[in-house]
Amino acid sequence: MNTSEMNAENTLLPLALLALGKTGADVERMVRKVRRTARRSGRAVSWADLENALLAGQADMSADLRRRAAVHEAGHAVVYTVTGVAAVQSASIGLHGIGMVTTTPNASLPQNETWLMNSVACLLAGRAAELTVIGEALAGGGGADESDLARATAMALAAETSLGFSGHQPLLYRSATMGTNELALDRQLAERVNRRLENAEAIARRIIDENRRAVEDVAAQLDDVGVMSGDEVRQLVGRPMDVIQPSNAPP
Protein backbone atom coordinates (compact mmCIF):
# COMPACT_ATOMS: atom_id res chain seq x y z
CA MET A 1 0.00 0.00 0.00
CA ASN A 2 1.48 3.38 -1.01
CA THR A 3 1.35 6.58 1.03
CA SER A 4 -1.63 8.06 -0.81
CA GLU A 5 -3.62 4.87 -0.33
CA MET A 6 -2.78 4.85 3.40
CA ASN A 7 -3.81 8.49 3.74
CA ALA A 8 -7.10 7.81 1.95
CA GLU A 9 -7.76 4.82 4.21
CA ASN A 10 -7.10 6.85 7.36
CA THR A 11 -9.27 9.72 6.06
CA LEU A 12 -12.22 7.42 5.41
CA LEU A 13 -11.83 5.45 8.65
CA PRO A 14 -14.39 7.51 10.66
CA LEU A 15 -17.03 6.91 7.99
CA ALA A 16 -16.10 3.24 7.75
CA LEU A 17 -16.60 2.85 11.50
CA LEU A 18 -20.01 4.50 11.29
CA ALA A 19 -20.94 2.04 8.53
CA LEU A 20 -20.11 -1.04 10.60
CA GLY A 21 -22.89 -3.60 10.46
CA LYS A 22 -24.23 -2.33 7.13
CA THR A 23 -23.93 -4.41 3.98
CA GLY A 24 -22.35 -3.15 0.78
CA ALA A 25 -25.84 -2.85 -0.68
CA ASP A 26 -26.96 -0.76 2.32
CA VAL A 27 -24.08 1.67 1.83
CA GLU A 28 -24.63 1.84 -1.92
CA ARG A 29 -28.31 2.73 -1.45
CA MET A 30 -27.39 5.34 1.14
CA VAL A 31 -24.78 6.96 -1.12
CA ARG A 32 -27.22 7.08 -4.05
CA LYS A 33 -29.77 8.81 -1.85
CA VAL A 34 -27.20 11.31 -0.59
CA ARG A 35 -26.11 12.04 -4.16
CA ARG A 36 -29.68 12.63 -5.31
CA THR A 37 -30.29 15.03 -2.42
CA ALA A 38 -27.08 16.95 -3.13
CA ARG A 39 -27.82 17.07 -6.88
CA ARG A 40 -31.25 18.57 -6.23
CA SER A 41 -29.58 21.24 -4.12
CA GLY A 42 -27.11 21.96 -6.92
CA ARG A 43 -23.99 21.03 -4.96
CA ALA A 44 -21.45 18.26 -4.50
CA VAL A 45 -21.73 15.57 -1.85
CA SER A 46 -20.00 16.65 1.36
CA TRP A 47 -18.45 14.74 4.23
CA ALA A 48 -21.26 16.00 6.47
CA ASP A 49 -23.86 14.54 4.07
CA LEU A 50 -22.35 11.08 4.37
CA GLU A 51 -21.78 11.35 8.12
CA ASN A 52 -25.33 12.51 8.79
CA ALA A 53 -26.75 9.72 6.64
CA LEU A 54 -24.77 7.12 8.58
CA LEU A 55 -25.73 8.64 11.92
CA ALA A 56 -29.41 8.66 10.99
CA GLY A 57 -29.79 5.10 12.24
CA GLN A 58 -28.50 5.81 15.74
CA ALA A 59 -30.64 4.59 18.60
CA ASP A 60 -32.36 7.35 20.58
CA MET A 61 -30.88 7.05 24.08
CA SER A 62 -31.10 9.20 27.17
CA ALA A 63 -27.87 10.58 28.60
CA ASP A 64 -28.04 8.01 31.41
CA LEU A 65 -28.56 5.05 29.08
CA ARG A 66 -25.83 6.30 26.75
CA ARG A 67 -23.39 6.45 29.68
CA ARG A 68 -24.34 2.95 30.82
CA ALA A 69 -23.99 1.58 27.28
CA ALA A 70 -20.58 3.23 26.96
CA VAL A 71 -19.38 1.65 30.21
CA HIS A 72 -20.75 -1.75 29.15
CA GLU A 73 -19.00 -1.75 25.78
CA ALA A 74 -15.82 -0.33 27.32
CA GLY A 75 -15.74 -3.33 29.66
CA HIS A 76 -15.91 -5.75 26.74
CA ALA A 77 -13.28 -3.84 24.75
CA VAL A 78 -10.78 -3.58 27.61
CA VAL A 79 -11.06 -7.21 28.74
CA TYR A 80 -10.74 -8.51 25.16
CA THR A 81 -7.63 -6.37 24.79
CA VAL A 82 -6.02 -7.36 28.09
CA THR A 83 -6.69 -11.11 27.77
CA GLY A 84 -5.64 -11.19 24.12
CA VAL A 85 -8.50 -13.58 23.35
CA ALA A 86 -9.46 -11.42 20.37
CA ALA A 87 -8.39 -8.17 18.74
CA VAL A 88 -10.95 -5.39 19.00
CA GLN A 89 -11.82 -3.99 15.59
CA SER A 90 -14.35 -1.41 16.76
CA ALA A 91 -16.54 -0.37 19.68
CA SER A 92 -19.75 1.59 19.26
CA ILE A 93 -22.91 2.68 21.00
CA GLY A 94 -26.20 3.69 19.41
CA LEU A 95 -25.31 2.56 15.88
CA HIS A 96 -26.55 -1.03 16.10
CA GLY A 97 -29.11 -1.14 18.85
CA ILE A 98 -27.62 -0.19 22.22
CA GLY A 99 -23.96 -1.07 21.63
CA MET A 100 -21.50 -3.45 20.03
CA VAL A 101 -17.84 -4.46 20.09
CA THR A 102 -16.53 -6.22 16.98
CA THR A 103 -13.49 -8.48 17.29
CA THR A 104 -11.23 -10.82 15.36
CA PRO A 105 -10.34 -14.02 17.27
CA ASN A 106 -6.69 -14.61 18.17
CA ALA A 107 -6.07 -17.81 16.22
CA SER A 108 -2.59 -18.25 17.72
CA LEU A 109 -3.88 -19.00 21.23
CA PRO A 110 -4.21 -22.65 22.32
CA GLN A 111 -7.86 -23.38 23.02
CA ASN A 112 -7.26 -24.70 26.51
CA GLU A 113 -9.26 -24.15 29.68
CA THR A 114 -7.58 -20.81 30.38
CA TRP A 115 -8.56 -19.62 26.90
CA LEU A 116 -12.15 -20.74 27.51
CA MET A 117 -12.44 -19.01 30.88
CA ASN A 118 -10.93 -15.80 29.50
CA SER A 119 -13.38 -15.99 26.60
CA VAL A 120 -16.30 -16.31 29.00
CA ALA A 121 -14.84 -13.42 31.02
CA CYS A 122 -14.86 -11.26 27.88
CA LEU A 123 -18.56 -12.02 27.37
CA LEU A 124 -19.34 -11.09 30.98
CA ALA A 125 -17.09 -8.03 30.98
CA GLY A 126 -19.82 -5.58 29.95
CA ARG A 127 -21.96 -6.52 32.92
CA ALA A 128 -18.88 -6.59 35.17
CA ALA A 129 -17.95 -3.06 34.09
CA GLU A 130 -21.46 -1.81 34.87
CA LEU A 131 -21.28 -3.35 38.35
CA THR A 132 -17.81 -1.91 39.00
CA VAL A 133 -18.22 1.57 37.56
CA ILE A 134 -21.94 2.26 38.02
CA GLY A 135 -22.82 -0.08 40.87
CA GLU A 136 -25.58 -2.01 39.12
CA ALA A 137 -26.18 -3.85 35.86
CA LEU A 138 -29.09 -3.43 33.46
CA ALA A 139 -31.07 -6.32 32.00
CA GLY A 140 -29.52 -5.77 28.57
CA GLY A 141 -26.78 -8.33 29.23
CA GLY A 142 -29.38 -11.09 29.13
CA GLY A 143 -32.90 -11.76 27.93
CA ALA A 144 -32.19 -13.26 24.50
CA ASP A 145 -30.46 -16.28 22.98
CA GLU A 146 -27.72 -14.04 21.52
CA SER A 147 -27.20 -12.04 24.73
CA ASP A 148 -23.95 -11.93 26.68
CA LEU A 149 -25.35 -14.14 29.44
CA ALA A 150 -26.71 -16.70 26.98
CA ARG A 151 -23.43 -16.97 25.09
CA ALA A 152 -21.39 -17.14 28.29
CA THR A 153 -23.67 -19.83 29.69
CA ALA A 154 -23.37 -21.83 26.46
CA MET A 155 -19.56 -21.74 26.66
CA ALA A 156 -19.51 -22.69 30.34
CA LEU A 157 -21.97 -25.49 29.62
CA ALA A 158 -19.81 -26.78 26.77
CA ALA A 159 -16.83 -26.87 29.13
CA GLU A 160 -18.79 -29.17 31.43
CA THR A 161 -20.49 -31.36 28.83
CA SER A 162 -18.57 -31.55 25.55
CA LEU A 163 -15.07 -30.02 25.66
CA GLY A 164 -13.49 -32.31 28.25
CA PHE A 165 -12.79 -29.58 30.84
CA SER A 166 -15.18 -30.81 33.53
CA GLY A 167 -13.85 -32.12 36.82
CA HIS A 168 -16.83 -34.49 36.81
CA GLN A 169 -16.87 -37.17 34.07
CA PRO A 170 -14.61 -35.17 31.69
CA LEU A 171 -14.62 -37.92 29.04
CA LEU A 172 -18.41 -38.06 28.78
CA TYR A 173 -19.65 -36.13 25.75
CA ARG A 174 -23.12 -34.64 25.70
CA SER A 175 -24.36 -32.58 22.77
CA ALA A 176 -25.13 -28.89 23.17
CA THR A 177 -28.83 -29.42 22.48
CA MET A 178 -29.08 -31.98 25.28
CA GLY A 179 -27.03 -29.84 27.64
CA THR A 180 -29.27 -26.78 27.48
CA ASN A 181 -32.25 -28.86 28.52
CA GLU A 182 -30.23 -30.61 31.20
CA LEU A 183 -29.56 -27.36 33.06
CA ALA A 184 -33.18 -27.37 34.17
CA LEU A 185 -33.08 -31.05 35.09
CA ASP A 186 -29.57 -31.64 36.46
CA ARG A 187 -29.03 -29.49 39.54
CA GLN A 188 -25.39 -30.49 39.96
CA LEU A 189 -24.61 -29.62 36.32
CA ALA A 190 -26.32 -26.25 36.73
CA GLU A 191 -24.23 -25.59 39.84
CA ARG A 192 -20.97 -26.43 38.01
CA VAL A 193 -21.88 -24.20 35.09
CA ASN A 194 -22.84 -21.36 37.42
CA ARG A 195 -19.55 -21.77 39.31
CA ARG A 196 -17.66 -21.36 36.04
CA LEU A 197 -19.66 -18.25 35.23
CA GLU A 198 -18.92 -16.78 38.66
CA ASN A 199 -15.20 -17.54 38.25
CA ALA A 200 -15.18 -15.96 34.80
CA GLU A 201 -16.96 -12.87 36.10
CA ALA A 202 -14.31 -12.64 38.84
CA ILE A 203 -11.61 -12.65 36.14
CA ALA A 204 -13.42 -9.87 34.29
CA ARG A 205 -13.87 -7.77 37.42
CA ARG A 206 -10.23 -8.17 38.40
CA ILE A 207 -9.09 -7.00 34.96
CA ILE A 208 -11.52 -4.08 35.09
CA ASP A 209 -10.32 -3.11 38.57
CA GLU A 210 -6.70 -3.23 37.41
CA ASN A 211 -7.52 -1.20 34.29
CA ARG A 212 -10.20 1.07 35.74
CA ARG A 213 -8.69 4.22 34.19
CA ALA A 214 -8.69 2.63 30.73
CA VAL A 215 -12.32 1.52 31.11
CA GLU A 216 -13.32 5.04 32.16
CA ASP A 217 -11.36 6.61 29.27
CA VAL A 218 -12.84 4.28 26.64
CA ALA A 219 -16.32 4.82 28.07
CA ALA A 220 -15.88 8.60 28.02
CA GLN A 221 -14.78 8.60 24.39
CA LEU A 222 -17.63 6.29 23.35
CA ASP A 223 -20.10 8.50 25.21
CA ASP A 224 -18.68 11.51 23.37
CA VAL A 225 -18.25 10.26 19.79
CA GLY A 226 -20.22 6.99 19.68
CA VAL A 227 -17.65 4.86 17.81
CA MET A 228 -13.97 3.95 18.21
CA SER A 229 -11.49 1.91 16.22
CA GLY A 230 -9.62 -0.99 17.77
CA ASP A 231 -6.38 1.01 17.59
CA GLU A 232 -7.98 3.82 19.59
CA VAL A 233 -9.08 1.32 22.24
CA ARG A 234 -5.62 -0.27 22.39
CA GLN A 235 -3.99 3.14 22.71
CA LEU A 236 -6.12 3.98 25.76
CA VAL A 237 -5.51 0.55 27.29
CA GLY A 238 -1.79 0.97 26.64
CA ARG A 239 -1.46 -2.23 24.66
CA PRO A 240 -0.56 -1.75 21.00
CA MET A 241 -1.42 -4.69 18.75
CA ASP A 242 2.21 -5.85 18.50
CA VAL A 243 2.75 -6.09 22.27
CA ILE A 244 -0.54 -7.67 23.42
CA GLN A 245 0.16 -10.74 25.52
CA PRO A 246 -2.66 -13.10 26.54
CA SER A 247 -3.66 -13.11 30.18
CA ASN A 248 -2.92 -16.37 31.99
CA ALA A 249 -5.50 -15.85 34.69
CA PRO A 250 -6.42 -19.26 36.11
CA PRO A 251 -10.05 -20.42 35.76
Rank of each mutant, 00 (worst) to 15 (best):
residue 161 T to G: 06
residue 207 I to G: 03
residue 162 S to G: 15
residue 176 A to K: 12
residue 145 D to T: 09
residue 132 T to H: 07
residue 121 A to Y: 06
residue 126 G to D: 01
residue 188 Q to H: 15
residue 194 N to H: 14
residue 82 V to A: 12
residue 100 M to C: 08
residue 148 D to M: 08
residue 140 G to S: 13
residue 128 A to D: 06
residue 194 N to T: 15
residue 200 A to H: 06
residue 135 G to L: 10
residue 115 W to I: 11
residue 207 I to Y: 04
residue 138 L to F: 07
residue 130 E to Q: 06
residue 85 V to S: 09
residue 124 L to D: 01
residue 175 S to W: 14
residue 108 S to R: 13
residue 103 T to M: 01
residue 131 L to T: 07
residue 189 L to K: 04
residue 120 V to D: 05
residue 168 H to L: 13
residue 82 V to W: 04
residue 149 L to Y: 13
residue 81 T to I: 10
residue 202 A to L: 06
residue 206 R to Y: 13
residue 182 E to P: 00
residue 199 N to W: 11
residue 164 G to H: 13
residue 191 E to F: 01
residue 186 D to A: 08
residue 99 G to Q: 00
residue 123 L to P: 01
residue 186 D to G: 06
residue 209 D to P: 00
residue 177 T to Q: 13
residue 107 A to H: 10
residue 148 D to G: 02
residue 177 T to C: 00
residue 201 E to K: 15
residue 83 T to P: 09
residue 144 A to T: 15
residue 150 A to H: 04
residue 186 D to F: 10
residue 91 A to P: 03
residue 184 A to V: 04
residue 157 L to Y: 06
residue 86 A to M: 02
residue 165 F to G: 08
residue 117 M to Q: 12
residue 139 A to S: 14
residue 119 S to G: 14
residue 81 T to Q: 10
residue 162 S to T: 12
residue 104 T to W: 01
residue 126 G to I: 00
residue 175 S to E: 10
residue 93 I to R: 03
residue 161 T to D: 04
residue 164 G to F: 11
residue 134 I to N: 06
residue 90 S to W: 01
residue 203 I to K: 03
residue 160 E to I: 07
residue 91 A to E: 00
residue 166 S to E: 11
residue 92 S to F: 00
residue 106 N to K: 05
residue 187 R to C: 02
residue 207 I to N: 11
residue 126 G to W: 00
residue 144 A to H: 07
residue 155 M to G: 00
residue 153 T to I: 13
residue 111 Q to A: 14
residue 108 S to Y: 12
residue 73 E to I: 02
residue 88 V to N: 06
residue 126 G to H: 01
residue 176 A to Y: 13
residue 120 V to A: 08
residue 189 L to Q: 05
residue 128 A to Y: 02
residue 150 A to S: 14
residue 161 T to Q: 10
residue 83 T to H: 07
residue 142 G to E: 03
residue 197 L to P: 04
residue 178 M to H: 06
residue 173 Y to C: 00
residue 165 F to M: 12
residue 115 W to Y: 14
residue 141 G to N: 11
residue 115 W to G: 04
residue 207 I to M: 10
residue 177 T to K: 13
residue 175 S to K: 09
residue 186 D to L: 11
residue 194 N to R: 15
residue 114 T to W: 11
residue 150 A to V: 07
residue 199 N to I: 04
residue 181 N to P: 00
residue 161 T to N: 08
residue 195 R to C: 09
residue 133 V to N: 00
residue 84 G to F: 13
residue 128 A to F: 04
residue 188 Q to I: 10
residue 73 E to D: 02
residue 169 Q to A: 12
residue 167 G to V: 06
residue 95 L to T: 03
residue 80 Y to F: 15
residue 129 A to H: 01
residue 186 D to R: 10
residue 104 T to V: 14
residue 153 T to V: 11
residue 165 F to C: 07
residue 75 G to V: 01
residue 72 H to R: 05
residue 106 N to G: 09
residue 155 M to P: 00
residue 168 H to V: 14
residue 131 L to N: 03
residue 124 L to W: 08
residue 102 T to M: 07
residue 188 Q to Y: 09
residue 100 M to Q: 14
residue 206 R to N: 11
residue 146 E to Q: 03
residue 175 S to G: 07
residue 99 G to N: 07
residue 92 S to H: 03
residue 177 T to H: 12
residue 170 P to N: 06
residue 73 E to G: 06
residue 145 D to M: 13
residue 141 G to W: 15
residue 80 Y to N: 09
residue 156 A to T: 05
residue 98 I to T: 11
residue 154 A to C: 02
residue 161 T to H: 05
residue 150 A to P: 09
